[in-house]
Design a protein around this nucleic acid. Structure first.
Lengths: 217, 217
DNA sequence: GTATAACTTGCACTCAGTCTACTTATGCAC
DNA sequence: GTGCATAAGTAGACTGAGTGCAAGTTATAC
């Protein structure tokens, strides 16, 4: 895609990577709150000011790595085969992600991803910062549902927020278990079962689980 | 409860209120980001240092006002009549809140609440800060479901996150409409309909809405 | 009425993030 | 290759949030 890039572009990319990697390594070693921006800049051999031109905030040094996937759910719904309901597409995609050990599902053994999870989960402000992605994901999904499944705006928003809540919780649960030391193959069966349960709850509702009587009226 | 409080207690409470009110007034007038802690402290006639002993962060000057209700959903579930399913209790409680114009539902005409909503909704970082309450609410609800409805931990967490997501969205929607200028009586029918829909989706699932076939397999 | 504990204050400090003016490196035209 | 426009990087001062500390002040207990 971006193949005939000049020296300038390549250098920029390398600087970006160097800063990001240096920061993550320092945070992993000493803790996010114990490392200052100045220290990261020094270790990465750029000026403080340059660092800020690549990463607008300290938080971004870490969570920018997760930003790519924020609208994934929306894309999955938009690109689904015409005969497939949105929720089925999301379910299939998620289960597929688990079997591929896609880091976005939290189920992975890749060391860099684990380091990243450890840093984030060990730092409350970073966990909070991640919610921005959840919200963006909700909006993208709501728009996709609204436009491709002919749902009224409010219905789409309610559905999207429910779906994202479940997927988020599933991934968070995986991340926590993986960070706690379980290897992905051992966790896989549980992760699949949890995902099946989550999507079934989404499709069939909580009524049956919660001693139902559907609603009271 | 705290009736025979001494002069010291009363003074403290008054100082707390004075700071909080002053801050909100300034934020409402000039914008949250345009007002510094120092200005708030001066206007409230306390030292900067004292302000921080009442409110650990600038954010808390605003969102501490919403903190009371964060575990409300958990309490509702715990205190429900023994024959009532949790979701029905939450639904009833929420609809009741709407009819009482409880500010927590977003449906209110009380000027102080409207000012608060305006400041929060007009300041991205405060909106983000509110998510902490949502998360706390989820945890409290999950615990309540786990303990009083005999749900396994993961099931309870999944259910709780869905339920909170819907209630949060309903209240947010009300807040936005009310801030946009609709008076609560005009909005009430819509808010009730939206709530009914949300709780029905929770109880019966998204399957039917999303061109179902429940799940694939 | 004094001792004590709780509350308040001023000051100096660290760190995140921004602004301005300046230097250096790259891309490109010739 | 030379030169120039422009993008990237640097230095250093500045603001504002939040903290630590040592001293001052005030309610309360005795």
């Amino acid at each position: 895609m971006s193949e005939q890039t000049g020296l300038r572009e390549r250098k920029k990319l390398r600087t970006y990577q160097a800063i990001s990697d240096t920061a993550l390594a320092l945070f992993a070693e000493h803790g996010y709150d114990q490392v200052s921006i100045t220290q990261v800049a020094e270790a990465a051999e750029v000026s403080r000011r340059t660092l800020f031109s690549y990463f607008p905030t300290k938080e971004d040094l870490v969570i920018s790595r997760m930003a790519d996937h924020e609208t994934e759910a929306g894309r999955v719904v938009r690109n689904r085969p015409p005969d497939q309901p949105p929720l089925a597409a999301l379910r299939t995609h998620y289960l597929d992600g688990l079997s591929r050990r896609d880091p976005i599902t939290g189920l992975t053994d890749l060391e860099p991803a684990l380091v990243l999870y450890r840093v984030i989960l060990g730092t409350p402000s970073l966990v909070a910062g991640m919610f921005k992605f959840k919200v963006n994901g909700e909006e993208a999904l709501a728009a996709a549902l609204h436009e491709t499944a002919a749902l009224p705006t409010l219905t789409a928003k309610l559905a999207a927020t429910q779906i994202m809540a479940v997927m988020w919780m599933l991934s968070l649960d995986n991340r926590e278990r993986v960070v706690a030391g379980t290897c992905s193959d051992d966790l896989y069966p549980h992760a699949v079962a949890a995902a099946e349960q989550g999507f079934t709850q989404l499709a069939n509702g909580l009524g049956t689980l919660l001693t139902a009587t559907t609603t009271t009226t």
